[in-house]
């Protein structure tokens, strides 16, 4: 394990733990609470209060504890990031492996498909998938839906990567010998070429994880993220922007949380790259 991998992985794990445990760590009714405020509780005596011993990172425009909201928001944002990465990796790996191994018409079709996805206005897609009946669809939590949207629009980059890796392997002696013993090409792709391409694809995948945290924040900025008043990092950054001239903590801390997460994911990617390069 290289140090970037260790540091990045450590941060990711801590953030994950804090987010998963947020309902117990940051709550007014839990006995394990470190932060004794729920993310939706108003403290009407402390409106837009600067960081203090009561509210460690200050409060927002209606007197909600910022740290509590950041921890609960992390739940949403990390769920979004992980969903997006999973969707992008799955789509890219399956389609990329098939395209790379089979080539020909299938390959051309998939390549044009990535063009369509690239050229499709993300904003329209996001509204179509997030705007409809917002918050009422019980089948999928909103964070997962945001993740789906981001995943669907970010797989093509990874697809090109997997495809070229698989092509490289498909031309190798290894694949030639497999074909010589009569293995069908699709099975070859799935069983042999995909694993070979998957390991180097981990690096760009970590970039997608990082990018989707940023994308969630961006969608929140455009009012297309999580339903308020539920916190997400995107919503919190948006709130911070409105008060940038009167409450610095509202701008600074959400930015720092997103920054730390994205940096951690990148360090994991960088660490993996070095690990593999050895």
């Amino acid at each position: 394990m290289t140090p970037p991998l260790r540091i990045g992985g450590g941060i990711v794990l801590v953030l994950l733990a804090l987010s998963v445990l947020a309902p117990w760590v940051a709550s007014s009714s839990s006995s394990f609470a470190i932060v004794p405020f729920g993310p939706l509780e108003l403290d009407q005596e402390q409106i837009l209060a600067a960081p203090s011993t009561t509210h460690w990172l200050g409060t927002d425009q209606v007197g909600r504890d910022l740290l509590s909201r950041l921890l609960h928001g992390g739940r949403q944002s990390l769920a979004t990031g992980l969903t997006a990465t999973l969707v992008a990796v799955l789509l890219a790996a399956l389609l990329g492996a098939a395209a790379g191994a089979r080539g020909g018409l299938l390959d051309t079709a998939f390549c044009r498909m990535t063009d369509v996805v690239y050229a499709f206005p993300v904003l329209v897609g996001a509204i179509a998938m997030l705007g409809q009946g917002s918050g009422e669809d019980p089948s999928l939590p909103p964070s997962v839906r945001v993740g789906l949207v981001i995943g669907i629009f970010s797989w093509p980059v990874l697809f090109r990567f997997v495809r070229s890796e698989v092509r490289r392997w498909a031309r190798s002696e290894f694949a030639a010998s497999a074909r010589a013993v009569g293995a069908p090409s699709l099975r070859l792709a799935l069983l042999h070429l995909l694993p070979a391409a998957a390991i180097p694809a981990l690096v760009p995948a970590s970039f997608i994880a990082a990018g989707s945290i940023l994308a969630e924040a961006g969608l929140g900025f455009l009012g297309l993220g999580m339903q308020p008043p539920e916190p997400s990092w995107g919503n919190l950054i948006l709130d911070g922007m409105k008060t940038v001239d009167t409450a610095w903590w509202m701008t600074l801390f959400p930015g720092l949380f997103v920054f730390a997460t994205v940096l951690a994911f990148q360090l994991v990617g960088e660490g993996l790259r070095r690990h593999l390069a050895r």
């Binding site: 924040a217 930015g255 997103v258 990148q266």
Partner: peptide, 14 residues
């Protein structure tokens, strides 16, 4: 690495 990790609109505001 640090630059990449900063949300661009947040940097813009700051």
């Amino acid at each position: 690495l640090v630059l990449y990790a900063l949300p661009s609109f947040w940097v813009a505001i700051v």
